[in-house]
Nucleic acid binder design. Structure first.
Length: 539
DNA sequence: ATAGGGTTAG
């Protein structure tokens, strides 16, 4: 920076200041390189009498790079007002600014200008458009830009994958990745693979994820922290704790995110104590925990039943680290209290919450009431949930189970009749299974695959075998407001069974089959996913 | 004359 000032001064003395080429380069160095900063660039910019397109582009780029998107857009306006015509270099930075601020409408109108000025066939402009629409959640226009492109680069594919990942459209991410490989137009790039790895994580595509890992190891000399962390997360969430832990231990540059992934991973797998140990290791390293890390540690306490430790950490979170607890933190700690049957403490805490308690909070208490067979709490919470207008069939299952356990048959029956009166149904589930690195999905009663008859026949065979082993179908947890026979049918061709039968048909003996089951609006945000993993085999 | 787009958890 000092050197830059010197050069600036020298240029002034030598009269080079009239040489706009020199000044432009000075400006670019200030704005973009690591040696300068935007304050100084603005100073230089203000000394230029008649800034041209290049100077404006440089300034817009610099602001975008600094995430100062407002200033970037202000300069773009100023540029137009002063009659400077933007070029194909201008727009990628302008769209980055729109994306950063989530200004879809503005982005769209600038897109219109781009078409008018004739820059809409520039590869870089198009890529930044895909990204802008994607960040704004407008997947339709992202795809439209993609479809209209004559030539594509790795960044094009990468932006499209990221756009779908942003909306939790993991299935589509893998489809796009498949298309890209078919085109054969790709090389070793970490960036696109990060999006794909993330899709593998969410879909439970362990084999595909593992082969991507192998590909990266063969083609790159080393992985960066981002890719490494997403691989660890992938292994853990796909059930392979050992591989995740192995990668983590060998990592050279662990950051907060790596610790965060590993801590919540350990918690998820029921290793609560190990998660807490890792948390203190992280603190020893001088890494400050954030709200997500705390969520991981609290859930570790929850899984390990460490009520005291959980409450202590909750205090620490608020007072030592000055973190404002979110509703998820409360949900976690309430679940912890509920499991420990500390219902008085739980209700006290709810009173003190800084936001109105949501359905999830009450639901965790209802579940605890069921576990401890506490009718008083169950009744109270059930009433509140109904007042909130819960339309979650699972709540009613829990309520009727609680009543049934307490042998209050009339109450149990009345809850069940409420379900039919309200026309509630259990959310449709979706099962995913990976066969030979390809994902397949099934819904209940699915007949969309060409070999569905074979699959159904397989299920009948499985049933014979199960019957032989003495298995009887349990319909008690099914809350469809349909008769027993229909319930049996639904269970019989449940999506998980279909996925399992399908995989059994296509894999050799002793193959491990993993089935991922999601409930809810599965094309929406990932937060709505509920993953239940099953492993079958190798036995 | 000078230059550019895509990146991880909850």
């Amino acid at each position: 920076m000092e050197d830059l000032k010197q050069i600036h001064g020298q240029m002034y003395k030598l009269g080079l200041y009239c040489d706009s080429f020199c000044v432009s380069n000075l400006l670019a160095t200030c704005a973009i390189s690591n040696w300068g900063n935007m304050d100084y660039a603005s100073l230089v910019f203000s000394q230029i009498d008649d800034p041209g397109t290049f100077e404006f582009n440089t300034m817009i780029r610099g602001h975008s790079k600094d995430s100062d998107f407002e200033s970037a857009l202000k300069l773009y306006d100023e540029m137009l007002e002063r009659g400077n015509s933007p070029d194909n270099f201008t727009y990628p930075f302008v769209f980055k600014a729109c994306a950063g601020l989530g200004l879809m409408k503005l982005g769209r109108s600038i897109h219109g200008q781009v078409c008018k000025f004739g820059f809409s066939d520039d590869l870089f402009v198009q890529n930044s458009l895909i990204n802008m629409y994607g960040k704004c959640g407008n997947i339709v226009d992202s795809c439209a830009v993609f479809k209209g492109m004559e030539q594509k680069s790795v960044a094009t594919w990468s932006a499209l994958v990221a756009a779908h990942a942003n909306l939790g459209m993991w299935w589509e991410c893998l489809e796009i990745f498949g298309d890209m490989m078919e085109m054969g137009s790709w090389r070793a790039e970490e960036s696109i693979l990060v999006g794909v790895i993330s899709a593998c994580t969410h879909l439970g595509a362990l084999d595909l994820g593992t082969s991507i890992h192998g590909y990266l190891m063969r083609n790159l000399s080393g992985l960066n922290v981002v890719v490494e962390t997403s691989l660890i997360d992938m292994y853990i969430k796909c059930g392979s704790m050992q591989k995740g832990l192995g990668l983590f231990d060998k990592m050279k540059a662990k950051n907060r995110l790596s610790y965060s992934v590993m801590i919540s991973g350990l918690a998820m797998h029921g290793h609560g104590h190990e998660a807490l140990l890792l948390f203190s290791e992280m603190l020893d390293q001088g890494i400050e925990p954030d709200d997500v890390v705390y969520l991981g540690v609290l859930s570790a306490c929850r899984h390990a039943g460490l009520a005291e430790e959980g409450l202590e950490l909750f205090e620490k979170l608020r007072h030592e680290n000055k973190i404002q607890p979110t509703v998820q933190h409360y949900g976690c700690i309430l679940d912890l209290l509920g499991r420990a049957a500390m219902f008085d403490e739980a209700f006290d805490l709810i009173e003190k919450m800084s936001m109105p308690p949501n359905e999830v909070v009450w639901r965790s208490l209802l579940s605890a009431a069921r576990i401890h067979c506490n009718l008083e709490v169950g009744d109270k919470v059930a009433k509140i949930l109904m007042q909130l207008g819960s339309d979650n069939a699972g709540d009613y299952v829990m309520m009727s189970n609680l009543y049934a356990r307490a042998q209050k048959w009339t109450d149990a029956a009345s809850v069940r009749s409420m379900v039919s009166n309200r026309g509630l149904d259990q959310a449709a589930g979706l099962s995913l299974v990976e066969v030979k690195r390809k994902m397949y999905r099934f819904v209940s009663q699915d007949r969309s695959r060409s070999n569905w008859e074979e699959i159904y026949e397989m299920i009948r065979q499985m049933e014979w075998q199960l019957k032989f082993e003495g298995y009887v179908a349990d319909t008690s947890e099914v809350l469809h407001n349909v008769d027993e026979e229909e319930k049996k049918q639904r269970l019989r061709y449940h999506s998980q069974k279909l996925a399992l039968a399908f995989a059994l048909l296509l894999t050799p003996e002793h193959t491990t089959i993993r089935i991922d089951y999601c409930i809810g609006p599965w094309s929406a945000k990932a937060a709505n996913f509920q993953h239940l993993q099953y492993e079958v085999g190798p036995e």
